[in-house]
């Protein structure tokens, strides 16, 4: 199997410094909706200028280069041990080149490892064996500010009158957006998972964020709730950075899981506007980046 360390390094560089076009487009549209002279409009101006500077100079969009979350779909027969080793080498090299900030801190001893490698779970790598010959590696960088405002609810939640149904889901998601205010670097993107156990629920709420902006759930009922949540969250007027303004949430993505009869979890992962996700596909000798 060929060594993909350099190709993965390139994936990391792109992810950290070049925001996906669908995200940038949505930010530009939102900028137009803010009042001239407002702090909200000023925030968007700075955001858009920063996107251009980062792309031109290959420097991180955000200094918090986040938790690196890799999703690897590999064909039968490829060694995941080797792939994981290459991902880790590429990440250490990316850190040396300042595409990434050293972000792995030992939680017991408060020691930053300096190279972004922190035990078996940092970076987070998920492997999935798939049919066919192509290898795809997706990378998402999720910063700590937005990760901190994520929330998990166990329904029913009497404090906000949320029952075990989609009406209850709507209530807790709006509550999460309110509690986040501007602290997750609004405008944000919501990944919502309904069901699962506490662990799988949070993981799926992030996984759903790999899809493109505007991708709707196949179930029309859920798709409608996604649209409604984005629109109602924006009614709250929290605005970019919490300055007040028209856009608080850029998009909402919901996924449903199986749950135990006793449990009804709703997990909300908040993704900041610096919604960094990129993909590479290896087709034989060819490597294609999105």
């Amino acid at each position: 199997m060929r060594d993909l360390t350099n190709e993965i390094l390139e994936l990391i560089r792109r992810t950290s410094s070049s925001l996906p076009p669908d995200v940038e487009k949505r930010l530009r549209e939102s900028f137009e909706k803010e009042q001239p002279g407002s702090s909200a409009r000023g925030a968007f101006e700075t955001i858009l200028k920063n996107i251009e500077i980062s792309r031109a100079n290959s420097t991180p969009i955000c200094q918090d280069t986040g938790t690196p979350i890799f999703y690897v779909h590999y064909p039968v027969g490829l060694s995941t041990i080797k792939l994981k080793g290459q991902i880790r080498s590429a990440l250490a090299e990316a850190t040396k080149r300042s595409y990434m900030r050293p972000n792995a801190v030992d939680a017991i001893y408060d020691k930053n490892t300096g190279n972004n490698l922190g035990g078996d779970d940092f970076p987070y790598v998920h492997f999935e064996e798939v049919e066919g010959d192509d290898l795809t590696i997706e990378l998402m960088l999720k910063g700590g500010g937005c990760e901190n405002v994520g929330r998990q609810y166990s329904l029913p939640d009497n404090s906000i009158g949320a029952g075990r149904d989609l009406a209850g889901v709507r209530k807790v998601v709006l509550d999460a957006v309110h509690k986040a205010q501007g602290q997750g670097c609004a405008p944000g993107i919501l990944g919502v998972s309904i069901g699962g156990d506490r662990g799988s629920s949070y993981i799926k709420s992030k996984e759903v964020l790999f899809s493109e902006m505007g991708t709707r759930n196949a179930d029309p009922k859920i798709a409608e709730l996604e649209e409604r949540l984005t629109s109602e969250a924006n009614e709250m007027g929290i605005g970019p950075m919490g300055f007040g303004g028209a856009t608080t949430i850029l998009d909402t993505k919901i996924v449903g899981l199986s749950r135990l009869p006793a449990s009804y979890f709703v997990s909300v992962s908040y993704m900041c506007w610096a919604y960094r996700r990129r993909k590479m596909t290896v087709k034989g000798e060819e490597v294609i980046y999105d």
């Binding site: 410094s17 920063n50 991180p60 200094q63 918090d64 910063g143 500010g145 950075m241």
Partner: peptide, 13 residues
């Protein structure tokens, strides 16, 4: 003073 979150390359300049 509120700076713009995520505007890291711009602020570094």
């Amino acid at each position: 003073f509120h700076a713009i979150g995520g505007a890291a390359s711009y602020i570094a300049q």
